[in-house]
């Protein structure tokens, strides 16, 4: 899967591209408006990640130009501007998602994956890992061919974990993914632990594998062994 990262902040570019490469993506970089326009004019990408504020131009124009080239890839805007207007404008121009800085890399990864799944109609619809099969359209989960009924949040937890396997997922990033700013309301992360404990119990009761591993003091790791 080929991704174009349009972002002018070099340190951020390095971290994101490094992470994406580890995830198995092919990641190309454009650090200003002209470079981005040049690249989308020549190459095809499965997904482009665009920052709005760029040297020599706006990321919104990159989105516009990309759409006019009739590319099929998805577009995710990553911006420091948490402005409703920009969000609406971006989505109107044809962007598929809008991620506000600062974000967790796992969050970006999850968004890219779900976007890719949405756009890739011809491909495999089901998410499979060992004996777990998730149908994102029906939001249903089967383990060893038996249906596991999960609550909405439990399903989201499992989806987030399965899309970021072998990674240490901190409670902060899990909380942010599931509840966003609402997480402020919780007094502690105990709340997440109990939710994860429930999913873990439900999956483990049907599976022959132990997927959920606690990482002491930090969070969890999803392992397929």
């Amino acid at each position: 899967m080929k991704i174009l990262l349009v972002e002018d902040e070099i340190s951020l570019v390095e971290t994101i591209s490094h992470y994406l490469k580890e995830e198995g993506y092919l990641c190309e970089i454009a650090t200003d408006y002209n470079m981005a326009i040049e690249k989308i004019g020549v190459y095809e990408y499965d997904c482009i990640l665009v920052d709005i504020t760029l040297p020599h131009g706006s990321g919104l124009d990159v989105v516009d130009s990309y759409k006019r080239h009739e590319h099929n890839g998805g577009i995710i805007i990553i911006s420091a501007k948490n402005s409703v207007d920009d969000k609406i404008k971006g989505l109107e121009l044809g962007a598929d998602d809008y991620l506000t800085k600062p974000f967790h890399l796992h969050e970006l990864n999850t968004r890219i994956k779900s976007l890719h799944r949405r756009l890739n109609f011809s491909g495999e619809r089901l998410i499979k890992l060992k004996d777990i099969v998730i149908d994102p359209d029906a939001k249903s989960v089967t383990v060893n061919d038996t249906m596991v009924p999960l609550t909405k949040k439990e399903y989201e937890i499992l989806l987030f974990f399965i899309q970021n396997p072998k990674r240490v997922l901190s409670k902060g990033s899990i909380a942010e993914h599931l509840w966003g700013d609402h997480m402020d309301v919780a007094d502690s992360y105990d709340f997440i632990y109990s939710q994860i404990k429930n999913v873990r119990k439900k999956i483990n009761s049907k599976s022959s594998f132990n997927y959920f591993h606690a990482v002491y003091g930090v969070g969890y790791k999803f392992l397929d062994q």
């Binding site: 971290t15 420091a80 600062p102 974000f103 990674r167 240490v168 990033s173 002491y216």
Partner: peptide, 29 residues
């Protein structure tokens, strides 16, 4: 502040994957 925060945040995510020492992980947390 948003962009520097984004850089710090993504680098912590990245470091968390690399470090295995308990103390270091806790410090990162």
């Amino acid at each position: 502040f948003q962009t520097p925060l984004a850089i710090i945040k993504s680098n912590i995510d990245w470091l968390l994957q690399q470090v295995s020492d308990k103390e270091q992980i806790l410090s990162l947390e």
